[in-house]
Amino acid sequence: MTQNILEIKDLHASVEGKQILKGLTLTVAPGEVAAIMGPNGAGKSTLANVLAGRPGYTVDSGSVSYLGQDLLALEADERACAGVFLAFQYPVEIPGVNNTYFLRAALNAQRRSRDEEELDSMAFLKLVRARLKALHITDDLLHRAVNEGFSGGEKKRNEVFQMAVLEPRLAILDETDSGLDIDALKIVADGVNELRSSERGFVVVTHYQRLLDHIVPDTVHVLMDGRIVKSGTSDLALRLEKEGYAWIQEELAA
């Protein structure tokens, strides 16, 4: 049996003293796209941020194993170097830091951690061009400061582009569909689909089914009140879209 990409067991986590995750258990196998759905306030973004190591999120108990190692013992940059990637719900604008420069620094930091040789700017540019081509996106984002003045769609496109360059083993997409019109959504989804592979796992956090029309998940998990309360296939997402979450609550109460 191949090793799971991610194994979360009975995870409890809190933000500013408030408990948000209350015993979450989830497994992601290689090649799997796992969708996490749930109503507002269920803890979806908290899960994404806890996995990426964002400061301010406290793990109270439980474990997270990533490719067999203790993910929670690593700092945010170490997690990234180990192959964890978070596509941000709200990508941050960083004036004064060029997008290409930033991405090369990130890739080279990751390569250093794997004892691989750093890429010079020529080699890096070649790689970038190849990725852009594969994702069918233009290079206009490269020359600007990181996310500065980007539209909502451009920001999310930039996230997917970074993912394509950094080639993570585990990609976590935090509400990647929020704030996107249908055309932008399609570009982003196509990019993600391009990156699906048998080596890579995805955790796709979303509030709406519509993203899952384009990124068809292998498994769908319902997150309510800090726990996964129901799991199924993409049919589950369709039912949630039609009927909302009330029926699950009723099921749980029964």
Partner: peptide, 9 residues
């Protein structure tokens, strides 16, 4: 966090 989440120390 945005920078460190990409692997930059």
């Amino acid at each position: 966090f945005y920078l460190t989440a990409r692997g930059i120390p």
